[in-house]
C-alpha cells in the first residue's frame, strides 16, 4: 500500500468552492464548499438524491458542474482534455455496478489503463496488476472474465483496476450497494486495508459500521447541501440534528 498516497498528511488534495449543479430544474448540488485532505477517509452519507454521488462524479468530471470551482491536487476540474486526463489518472473511481469491461479478462481489465494512458509496457503492467490482484485476494482469477466472478470479486477487481493507475485519491460510489449481504464484507475489508495504508478516500455508502470504524470524517448531505461535517464520534454519538437522527434511524445504525 506504500506506493500510493505520496502526499503528506493534512495537505489539501481536493478543494470545492461554491459548486452548483442542476439536472433540468432540479438542483442537486447547492453551493457546496469543502476540502478533502490527504490520507483522510471521508464517508459521505445522506438520503438518495441528496447529491452525494453527484459530488463524487463532479470531482472527476463525469458530471460537469454548472458553477463554482473544483481543484484536485492543483488541477482545475474543467473540460480541457490534457488536464482532464491528468486529473482522471490521479483520481480512481469505484462504481456501484462495478462496470468491469465484460469482454476483457480480469488481468486485461487491470492493465488496460496503465498501458494506454501511462504507456507502461505490457509485461510490466501485468506484473503490477498481479501484485494488485494479490492484494485484493484475486491472483488466482486473473485469466477469468468478469461474468465468471461473484459480485464481491468483481468489485474487488474494480478496486484493483482503479489502483493500477496509482491514484492519489479513490472515490467510492456506493461500492457495496449492489452486492449480496454475504459479499459486502470482503469488499469493505479491501477498502479498510486501503485506508490503513494511507489512501485518501471519499466513500459514498450506507454502511454505517464502516463509517464509524474507518471514517475520519462524516459528511451528511441533505437536499444538495452539506448539512453536517463531523467526526464519526460526534456524528453518531452526539448528534443534535433531528434530521440526521431520523436518517440514522432509517438506515438502522442504532
Amino acid at each position: 500500500m506504500s506506493a500510493v498516497a505520496a502526499a503528506p498528511k493534512n495537505e489539501t488534495l481536493i478543494d470545492l468552492q461554491g459548486v452548483n449543479k442542476s439536472f433540468g430544474t432540479h438542483q442537486v448540488l447547492r453551493d457546496v464548499s469543502t476540502a478533502f485532505r490527504a490520507r483522510e477517509v471521508t464517508v459521505i452519507v445522506g438520503a438518495s438524491g441528496s447529491g452525494k454521488s453527484t459530488m463524487l462524479r463532479a470531482i472527476n468530471r463525469l458530471e460537469p458542474h454548472d458553477s463554482g470551482r473544483i481543484v484536485v491536487d492543483g488541477i482545475e476540474v474543467n473540460d480541457d482534455a490534457t488536464s482532464l486526463q491528468k486529473l482522471r489518472s490521479e483520481v480512481g473511481m469505484v462504481f456501484q455496478q462495478f462496470n468491469l469491461f465484460s469482454h476483457l479478462t480480469v488481468l486485461d481489465n487491470v492493465t488496460l489503463a496503465p498501458r494506454r494512458v501511462r504507456q507502461t509496457a505490457k509485461a510490466q503492467a501485468q506484473q503490477d496488476a498481479m501484485e494488485l490482484l494479490k492484494r485484493v485476494g484475486l491472483q488466482d482469477h486473473a485469466h477469468k472474465h468478469p461474468y465468471q466472478l461473484s459480485g464481491g470479486q468483481q468489485q474487488r477487481v474494480a478496486i484493483a483496476r482503479a489502483l493500477a493507475m496509482a491514484p492519489k485519491v479513490m472515490l467510492f460510489d456506493e461500492p457495496t450497494s449492489a452486492l449480496d449481504p454475504e459479499m459486502v464484507k470482503e469488499v469493505l475489508d479491501v477498502m479498510r486495508a486501503l485506508a490503513d495504508g494511507g489512501m485518501t478516500m471519499l466513500v459514498v455508502t450506507h454502511e454505517m459500521g464502516f463509517a464509524k470504524d474507518v471514517g475520519d470524517r462524516i459528511l451528511f448531505f441533505d437536499q444538495g447541501r452539506i448539512a453536517c461535517d463531523q467526526t464519526p464520534d460526534d456524528f453518531f454519538n452526539r448528534q443534535d440534528s433531528e434530521r440526521v437522527r431520523a436518517f440514522l434511524g432509517l438506515v438502522g445504525s442504532h
Binding site: L62, A113, R116, V117
Partner: peptide, 9 residues
C-alpha cells in the same frame, strides 16, 4: 464512464 474515469482518451 469506467473507461473515462480511468483516464482513457
Amino acid at each position: 464512464e469506467a473507461a473515462r474515469a480511468l483516464g482513457l482518451g
